[in-house]
């Protein structure tokens, strides 16, 4: 059997591809792009939530939010390590992020404008991420699949915590309910955009499905998120901002309105409300930390020399 035949055989039999296995160049490249994009999303996602950690309204809420953001940092760390098994360093991935070569989830280019947004982000954004990540637990690349198993457990906590915030507001005073509805209004459409373009317009999904990197299509994932989330909103007495949203008995699913693809592609291209701010923030922290990393390296080197000499 040739390398390619062996590879195809494994894919066909649902045997995971491991870092030392031979893999087609494009398979590796696709994973490098997808996994680093996933890692970057965890890291950039810390910013919109970090925006409220100093202003959380109770001690309990503050601790839960900070612990959640810390989880996301951990996910990022974990995913960078998994992505490094593909033969590219974390430093290189980060450089690609900072120079705009690599993307991250567009959802984090939207601003968090009220405390209710901490609820909406947990409920909708983590909620959408779970739908995607549960599916990725069966992805064909071993280290990616395993990282998803670990990450999904924490994501479902995040989703519940976010829902709790929104639920408290929705059952609160009229002002609080208004805050919750406003957050839902602003985050609903960007959340369902998280699943990417319609399958028909998605030039990337084809190979990824063949290689079993991606197991379900964008549209299928989006539909399952919507079907899961609409009843939750109803339970809260909140209105999904889509006049075309309607239960379709025949399909056993919700029909929904047309996504604003012009907005979607603009945010992807860098024209969203916070694209520049998010990258600037990341670059600034990185540059401010440069002297610290250099000092740590210099110290480690000196220690090594001392050890060698003795």
């Amino acid at each position: 059997m040739t390398d390619l035949e062996k590879f195809n055989d494994k894919i066909a039999n649902n045997i995971k591809i491991e870092p030392k296995d031979w893999m087609p160049d494009d398979y590796r490249k696709h994973l490098q792009r997808q996994m680093s994009q996933h890692a970057h999303s965890e890291i950039i996602g810390m910013q919109p939530e970090g925006n409220w950690v100093l202003r959380a309204p109770t001690m309990r809420a503050k601790v839960i939010l900070l612990a959640k953001i810390q989880d996301e940092a951990g996910h990022g760390l974990y995913l960078y390590s998994a992505a490094e098994t593909l033969g590219k360093s974390r430093d290189t991935y980060i450089e690609e992020l900072q120079t705009g070569k690599a993307k991250y989830s567009s959802i984090f280019n939207y601003p968090t404008l009220s405390w209710a947004d901490m609820g909406a982000v947990g409920w909708l954004v983590d909620g959408a991420a779970i739908v995607n990540q549960v599916s990725l637990q069966r992805t064909s690349y071993g280290p990616y699949a395993r990282s998803m198993v670990r990450i999904c457990k924490e994501e479902s906590f995040h989703q519940r915590q976010g829902y709790e915030i929104i639920a408290t507001l929705a059952k609160g005073t009229p002002k609080q309910k208004e805050m919750a509805q406003d957050a839902l209004n602003r985050f609903w459409w960007p959340s369902i955009m998280m699943f990417g373009p319609h399958d028909a317009d998605s030039y990337r999904s084809s190979n990824a499905m063949e290689w079993k990197i991606k197991l379900e299509s964008n549209d299928a994932l989006r539909q399952s998120f919507i079907d899961k989330t609409v009843p939750q909103a109803e339970l809260l007495g909140l209105t999904i901002p889509d006049p075309d949203l309607k239960w379709n008995e025949e399909r056993g699913s919700y029909d929904f309105g047309e996504i604003n693809w012009e907005e979607f592609w603009n945010v992807v291209k860098g024209n969203g409300p916070c694209n520049k701010q998010r990258i600037k923030h990341h670059v600034k922290a990185h540059e401010n930390g440069k002297w610290v990393r250099e000092a740590a390296n210099a110290y480690a080197k000196k220690q090594k020399e001392i050890k060698k000499a003795s």
Binding site: I43, M46, V53, G74, L77, A285, N288, G289, V292
Partner: peptide
């Protein structure tokens, strides 16, 4: 939070 010199130190 999100301003640490490394990701490990941020955590």
């Amino acid at each position: 939070c999100s301003n640490g010199p490394t990701l490990e130190e941020d955590i």
